[in-house]
Design a protein around this nucleic acid. Sequence first.
DNA 1: TTCGGTGCAAACTCTTTGCACGACG
DNA 2: CGTCGTGCAAAGAGTTTGCACCGAA
Lengths: 146, 146
Amino acid sequence: MADKGHKTELEIFLGFLNKRGKSLTNQRKLVIEQIFRVHKHLEADDIVQALRKKNQRVARATVYRTIKLLEDCGLIKKVDLGSDYTYYEHTHGHLHHEHICCEQCGMVEEFTDPVLEERIRRVAKDNNFKLTDHSVQIFGICQNCM
Amino acid sequence: MADKGHKTELEIFLGFLNKRGKSLTNQRKLVIEQIFRVHKHLEADDIVQALRKKNQRVARATVYRTIKLLEDCGLIKKVDLGSDYTYYEHTHGHLHHEHICCEQCGMVEEFTDPVLEERIRRVAKDNNFKLTDHSVQIFGICQNCM
DNA sequence: TTCGGTGCAAACTCTTTGCACGACG
DNA sequence: CGTCGTGCAAAGAGTTTGCACCGAA
């Protein structure tokens, strides 16, 4: 019980699937493993490609279906970084964070900032909103590119 | 000259087109008028539909092409509000602002917050980024929906 | 046997592009 | 004329769905 909140992604996913009367198939396992192996913002097709490279063929459709399940159980989240693709990032085990993106090289860093968060809570309150989520993107040119 | 900076969108667009050796056709005029008539986040297809209702038929492709021009000259900007569509909003004559969205009814309000802006400048600096742009989205439940 | 799950291909949605025609200097 | 712009339809890109087969309880 001391381990509450320390479940692995796989365990969480398994619990979620069980609750829905679904099972952790090999394909789903491959997809989730691939997603959580790489700590990076990823696009649906990246997963298909990465798995294909290892000769672990999972149908495109299955990847999409699994992604949807992972979204449903809150393990991953869509992020928009101005690009034209739909990116995902893992949420489990990671504090809420924002993104700072280099418009030149495309590099994305994550950061957290308590002051920013507090201010956002404040704005929500001032607007009579019950805050559920927020996101901040900063765009600029990184040190390397300057 | 006292009017510098008070040009209408149409004038700005016209200037932009001239600079590129392009002209303000009737279709382009219809599209830009439609876009700036409604102060609301809009999607490409909304424009096609709205014009069609007034029997002002402009081909879908032309709308897309005009939108691209308007983006190029900075009159409109893509915004991502978590939806699956590509929305645009006008930037001319509007201060930079952020969005606070109700996840229940989809209502979107705009706000500005100097403290937030200042903090973002600070974060960029701390990360050695030359700041070029930023965006903040707050999601929650609005007063009406509660 | 019964379902859920998978793979494949077709369908769908939004957007872009190729092409021929039309407008305008 | 020569070019730019338009409309149309086809092509693309990413994602979803219908359907037949497969596989575990």
